[in-house]
Design a protein around this nucleic acid. Structure first.
Lengths: 329, 329
DNA sequence: AAAGTTTCCGTAACCGGTTACAAGAATTCA
DNA sequence: TGAATTCTTGTAACCGGTTACGGAAACTTT
């Protein structure tokens, strides 16, 4: 299929290029009927505007920056999916994306029209720097410190772990451990809070010995569980703050001859593609990373257009699979 | 700094746009003096051609596809760095990159001008499919099966492990174990071959019990070492086929009370950013992923220009740090 | 020295969009 | 009903490059 241009759409719809462009950019001053007919022709022909030509005509930089913190260890897969989603959304709008690692001043120097901030932490200087330069930005993930200053989009961490724990409790578990990530991250804190909330609701005792640091990695989860087993701690379920830690935990349990879910139930958080194919299939809290990315992109787009946008907390969903089961004495 | 256009360069150099463009694209029919003077002005003004405008004028799609195999587990960090490098090189040439997961037929349907193939395995159908459609492509990594059919760029896996083993032998080690990755991959096979070659050269016995599968992951390395320790296998050094497996191996050794490098020496492969900051700093075989990416991009660019390109084996370098030391009885 | 070649470079059209401007049609107002 | 507005749309210039074409100048050839 040869590429279809705005000219062809115009001819097919019996209007001029200008009108098609106006429809395309949702500008007003176009008759309702004309608009819908043009829209029809566009979908029928499968028209997709050429980003290059658009940028050229719009005479802007049309670059948006992705700013990561240095912490690449955490959630590689998560980051990859998010990045794909952002790129997808932005490219369809004629923007290209550029990666900046850590805090790169070049980012500010008129290098990008807007910025997506990943992994903002407590004493992060990026939000205030961007604010000072009046560069529009939105954060993925949020912390109380920065929550009021700029729009963010984040998953509902608290509810996520709350639901997971509630699920385990409903299965009869009482001694439920929590595998947490690095203590600096906001996500970890919120997930611990969700865990606490879940235990509290059922009036179960919160034993700090059952909160283990798994460093947000598979091997971290593995080691934490090994240590717990070596210390002869008692527990019948583990609610992990990430799928990767849950994978590690399960491997460690199985290596010690325990069977999942008969001896120990395990839940994760993320619902990575591998969660469903893992053996046993992992019960987990699904966060739709793609949705988060697209949401963030759209918020930034609006913010760059001068609109005021408000932050978004995207809901999570508990996915029950094979790794969690009833508590058998 | 306001953006400088081809017009301004032309005016400053006292020639026309056309001439500047000819210089830019290294076309002939331009006087030597004129050429150098234009070149001077360009660097002086810091002129960078607008990719969007170029693509528009060159009337091509100017998209190149990145085709991954499904195996996302292997080397997340590796993949991320490679991708950045490819993107960097292509974008400076006015190409945008698009990700295709697994074998996506859309890739062929005039979606991209060229393709980079990642993780080609033995019975991979992608090379022949692309060949049939006459889509230019280059492979990152190589296997004997496909090596002759299309250009590839790969790191010198054999020499890499050979050097690592030789290094360990020089330190006095005789019982050297090898942590390998998934057996389907070509890289694993070549690295095993390098290991064998190193042992053979020193006339050391190759004990198959000392070749462990670490699945190319940290946790895989951890478990493999644990199993080896539990089986009371004897060894004083481990040459791993990836940094991540080496990290896992070191953690497992330390968890059992062994000290690196005094009790066991460990080497990795990749030299990821984290290798230097790991404790102890990891001795490893450096493969410059960025160089590989840039090389691959340039080869594809040439191939798309119709030139015949030949494959490239990029050299590796042994980096000695703290994790390997002399064998102490 | 006239004619034929080459070499070098300016001109202008074009790529696929956006947008200021103007003009015709429809509507509102007196 | 004629004038003043408001809608709607076509026209043409422009974004920053590339490239076919043609002409002037310099070089060869007879």
């Amino acid at each position: 299929m040869a590429k279809v241009t705005i000219q062809e759409v115009a001819r097919a719809a019996g209007v001029s290029k200008g009108t098609v462009s106006r429809v395309l950019n949702a500008r007003d001053g176009v008759n309702g009927e004309t608009r819908t007919s043009v829209l029809d022709v566009m979908t029928q022909l499968g028209y997709v505007p050429d980003p290059g030509a658009r940028n050229l005509a719009r005479r802007g930089k049309h670059v948006i920056g992705l700013s990561l913190d240095g912490d690449e260890r955490r959630g590689n897969t998560y980051y990859g999916i998010l990045r794909d989603a952002l790129e997808f959304r932005f490219s369809s709008e004629g923007y290209s994306t550029k990666i900046f690692s850590g805090y790169d001043p070049a980012m500010l120097e008129a290098e990008s029209d807007g910025v997506i901030l990943l992994g903002v932490h407590l004493d992060d200087s990026r939000p205030s720097q961007l604010e000072a330069r009046k560069v529009p930005f939105v954060m993925v993930g949020h912390s109380l410190e920065h929550a009021e200053r700029a729009p963010w989009v984040d998953v509902d961490n608290i509810s996520g772990l709350f639901e997971a724990v509630r699920h385990l409790i409903k299965l009869g578990h009482k001694r439920i451990a929590h595998l947490t990530g690095a203590s600096t991250g906001q996500a970890s804190r919120q997930r611990i809070e969700g865990y606490r909330k879940g235990m509290l609701e059922a009036k179960l005792k919160i034993d700090n010995q059952l909160v283990w640091d798994g460093e947000f990695t598979e091997v971290g989860g593995y080691r934490a569980v090994r240590r717990a087993l070596a210390a002869k701690l008692e527990f019948s379920a583990i609610a992990a703050a990430s799928d990767e830690m849950a994978f590690g935990a399960i491997m460690a349990l199985e290596d010690e001859g325990l069977r999942i879910p008969w001896d120990v139930s395990v839940t994760g958080f993320d619902d990575l593609p591998s969660a469903a194919s893992f053996k046993p299939a992992l019960s987990t809290v699904r966060q739709d990373i793609t949705t988060i990315g697209i949401r963030a992109a759209e918020m930034l787009l609006e913010s760059m257009a001068g609109k005021k946008v408000s932050s978004a907390l995207v809901p999570v969903k508990l996915i029950v699979r094979a790794s969690s089961g009833a508590h058998t004495t």
